[in-house]
């Protein structure tokens, strides 16, 4: 196992760790907007780390170009999708945890 392999496997394992923490966040976080945060941020970092780890495995050829293309594509589309989803949810009337709890207080005060 030479130096590149060690770096590559460390990147892979770090990427997997971030992906896993994002998946846990999907269930553990209290309201929708924090869950979007958990999913989208870890999506980006996991994509960078895992594809970076795989890039070190390639000899410099067409596969390298394809991996870079995938990485760029994911880095552009995945945050955009999260942003559009959060925006739609906001326009659709979904409230954050703080807002909904303050609304509850107002209703109980009445």
């Amino acid at each position: 196992m030479d130096f590149l392999d060690i770096v590559s496997s460390m990147l892979l394992l770090a990427g997997v760790f971030f992906g896993f923490s994002g998946a846990v966040g999907l269930f553990r976080f209290p309201d929708f907007f924090t869950r979007v945060h958990a999913a989208s941020v870890t999506d980006s970092i996991a994509a960078i780390l895992i594809i970076g780890g795989l890039l070190l495995q390639t000899s410099f050829d067409l596969n390298t170009a394809k991996l870079v293309f995938i990485l760029l594509f994911l880095l552009v589309t995945s945050p955009t999708a999260s942003h559009a989803l959060a925006k739609s949810a906001r326009h659709g009337g979904l409230l954050t945890l703080a807002e909904s709890s303050s609304q509850d207080k107002q209703e109980s005060a009445k």
Binding site: V76, T77, T80, H83, A84, K87, H91
Partner: peptide
């Protein structure tokens, strides 16, 4: 209304 989506 989704300007970011337009650009991307």
């Amino acid at each position: 209304t989704h300007s970011v989506l337009h650009v991307v």
